[in-house]
């Protein structure tokens, strides 16, 4: 039984290591900033996720206690990672990408980076 536990924990660690490596490799290989933005979103999901699962298994099966910290790390990562990516994307777009380079909104207003929001309705 013990050997099975160790194999499972090691497997998750190796999986997360591989995805972390591929994510970092993507940063080097991809051409422009928008493409490179895709690489770290990989490392934070499966890369970190694998380590967290391995950690939970370790505490559950080896140390015989349930640990919730890994679930909280997942929760906080899911809350913060998209916001970081969005901020980088917006900063890059406003500095380097012209409005003509991206497709239209198919609506009345342009994209928020290039266009002002509509006037708020009159409050009574």
């Amino acid at each position: 039984m013990e050997i099975l536990t160790e194999v499972a924990i090691s497997a998750f660690l190796v999986i997360s290591g591989v995805f972390g490596l591929v994510g970092s490799f993507g940063l080097v290989k991809l051409k422009d900033t928008m493409q490179r933005l895709h690489a770290p979103t990989k490392a934070t999901t499966l890369g970190v996720g694998g380590v967290l699962i391995a950690s939970m298994l370790y505490f559950l099966l080896v140390k015989d206690k349930l640990s919730f910290h890994e679930l909280l790390i997942t929760l906080f990562l899911f809350l913060t990672a998209p916001i970081t990516a969005n901020f980088i994307a917006k900063a890059y777009m406003s500095a380097n990408i012209r409005e003509a380079d991206v497709p239209t909104t198919q609506g009345e207003k342009g994209w928020a980076i290039y266009d002002d929001p509509p006037e708020p309705a009159e409050q009574d």
Partner: peptide, 28 residues
């Protein structure tokens, strides 16, 4: 929705339209 698009790899949500009626997504 924007968070989901970013977290599922291959797509990153970049910006909203000024009136919030559309979202611009970058696909790898």
């Amino acid at each position: 929705l924007a968070g989901t698009i970013t977290m599922t790899p291959g797509t990153v949500s970049a910006t909203l339209s000024a009136d919030g009626s559309a979202i611009l997504v970058h696909c790898l």
